[in-house]
């Protein structure tokens, strides 16, 4: 399992992306991350809830109490327009970062 600082630095964006796709609840998000990465990356619950709290404080996401499933109410998260704008900025930033890192870490094995 990879626990890279680079991934940690972009957890906000990863979680925003998942919430942009549709409204989701906590466990669904951690499960989705494990599934999509084939268990190569798993988010710790402590990290996940710290991120939720931070994103909600910055008004990038909102929460609401969703339908009752298995006899319990679930807290769902939903993206705000500010959150979408923030995510789009992050995409642009990532493109640039990727190019910069690639300049040094890719395709220079033969030299």
């Amino acid at each position: 399992m990879i626990s890279s600082d680079i991934i940690r630095g972009h957890l906000d964006s990863i979680i925003l992306k998942l919430i942009i796709e549709k409204d989701r609840y906590g466990y669904e998000i951690s499960n989705e991350i494990s599934t999509r990465t084939n268990n190569r990356f798993q988010i710790k619950e402590a990290t996940l809830y710290a991120v939720f709290h931070r994103l909600e404080n910055k008004e990038l996401i909102e929460s609401y109490i969703g339908d009752v499933t298995h006899g319990r109410k679930r807290k769902y998260y939903k993206i705000t327009s500010l959150g979408k704008a923030y995510y789009n900025e992050k995409i642009k930033e990532w493109q640039i970062i990727k190019e910069i890192i690639n300049l040094f870490l890719e395709g220079s094995e033969n030299e």
């Binding site: 906590g26 466990y27 809830y49 319990r72 679930r74």
Partner: peptide, 20 residues
Amino acid sequence: EQKENIKQEIIQNLEDKVLN
């Protein structure tokens, strides 16, 4: 209040995980 909310949410999601 915030602490209680986060606690409830974490307990519920950990239980989801256990069930899964």
